[in-house]
Design a protein around this nucleic acid. Structure first.
Lengths: 218, 218
DNA sequence: AATAAGGTTTAGCTTTGCCTAAAATAAAAG
DNA sequence: CTTTTATTTTAGGCAAAGCTAAACCTTATT
């Protein structure tokens, strides 16, 4: 696998995030990258010449199989580094994203393999997102939104969406972490907020919170 | 402290390596960086505008106090990452340099501090080189070349020079590691090679090997 | 079907960072 | 003290990546 610039890798990552294998519009990509449309046009042309994307002018850009492979390898690195930062260095989950964004560009297969081992061959990162395997396979995406369960169910938190630092702060102050278990006490018919109970007591979660917290029955 | 490009940081690092605080010639710098003289002229001009170096055309370039501070902070990161790669991920010392060269550009004070703690606040890296402190202080440079001791002395290996991968390979095959202790059995008057002894037996080290291995009396 | 609106691309400019070839300067040799 | 040699700097190019403004497609509206 050849070597790519950070900018190229960022475009590939954005493309994967926005479309997976499907076409993405210039505008959406520009927004995601934080650049102007004209810059994006140029950038995707470069990527096209490297066979990482297919470009249809005025229509959209689409990752090639090669591009998808690259995207996954970057995502793998990103999530492994996040795991390292949280599990080993004790960072909070809201802090790790920008750091992982730098670390994901480090080029070394060997390093990734060793890091993976060092972390205990994790399948999911600290947010519960699946870490792509070496060969590109994806572990399952875990859980369903809390609101999808029925009252009385015992649940375990397995994943949280990246919904901005305020969301993470809120999780911290409410002391909600991956692995925590609760009983669903009630679901409001009025605003879909949810009452959770544990040995420590009970509390209500707003609909907006619930939508970004995923759990499994336990 | 502002943010710098990787190229800038590489120049600063090279300048520090070659001259510390003293002036360095365009040519030496070019050689070290692996670029042409004309590129160097441009680059140092840019650094000059950021007050990281003082440039006297046709004479030489010299780090400013600011530049020295930056150089040390990069070196600190480099050596901490090398320590991480060897101590935690199990890399061999000959493999870590190019990786640390990438990792040293990661920008985050917090990350460096946490890494430092995680590694047990090391004073020296896996080669025995001093790791600059947070405030720029330098721990002592350890040891003297093996040939400087007299026969009969008990020594402990504390540092090895970065003398290329063949040198490291040789160390590996001879099973020589930092912390190993030996008795100096003899020093050849003919070629300055040295006979070392341990519980495992005795062996001879060439003058070239000795020159790159540093030890203290123990 | 004609046109207005919105999104996309082209054209042309900027900076970083490297290159080659030519000019300028410093240092060494006569 | 002049000349040769070696080093350094200027001049002019090129590629990556971004920008603005203008031109160009698509699509949606009349």
């Amino acid at each position: 696998m050849k070597t790519h610039t950070e900018s190229e890798e960022n475009y590939i990552k954005a493309l994967y995030h926005l479309g997976g294998g499907r076409p993405v519009s210039n505008g959406d990509l520009a927004q995601r990258i934080g650049a102007k449309g004209s810059s994006v046009t140029q950038a995707v042309r470069r990527l096209g010449q490297k066979d990482l994307v297919n470009v249809v002018p005025y229509k959209g850009v689409q990752l090639t199989p090669q591009g998808i492979r690259l995207a996954k390898s970057i995502l793998r690195k990103h999530r492994l580094w996040e795991t390292f930062l949280v599990d080993k260095l004790g960072f909070g989950w809201e802090e790790v994203h920008p750091l992982a964004e730098q670390l994901e560009h480090i080029q070394s297969e060997e390093l990734v393999d060793r890091l993976f081992q060092f972390l205990g061959s994790p399948k999911h990162d600290p947010h519960g997102d699946p870490i792509p395997e070496r060969d590109g396979q994806m572990p399952p995406v875990l859980g369903q939104p809390i609101g999808a369960f029925t009252a009385g169910t015992e649940i375990r938190i397995v994943r949280v969406e990246d919904a901005g630092s305020e969301f993470f702060d809120q999780l911290d102050t409410m002391n909600i972490n991956l692995g925590n278990t609760y009983e669903i006490r009630a679901i409001s018919a009025f605003d879909s907020s949810v009452e959770l109970g544990s040995s420590a007591g009970t509390f209500w979660l707003s609909q907006n919170m619930c939508a970004n917290i995923y759990a499994v029955q336990s």
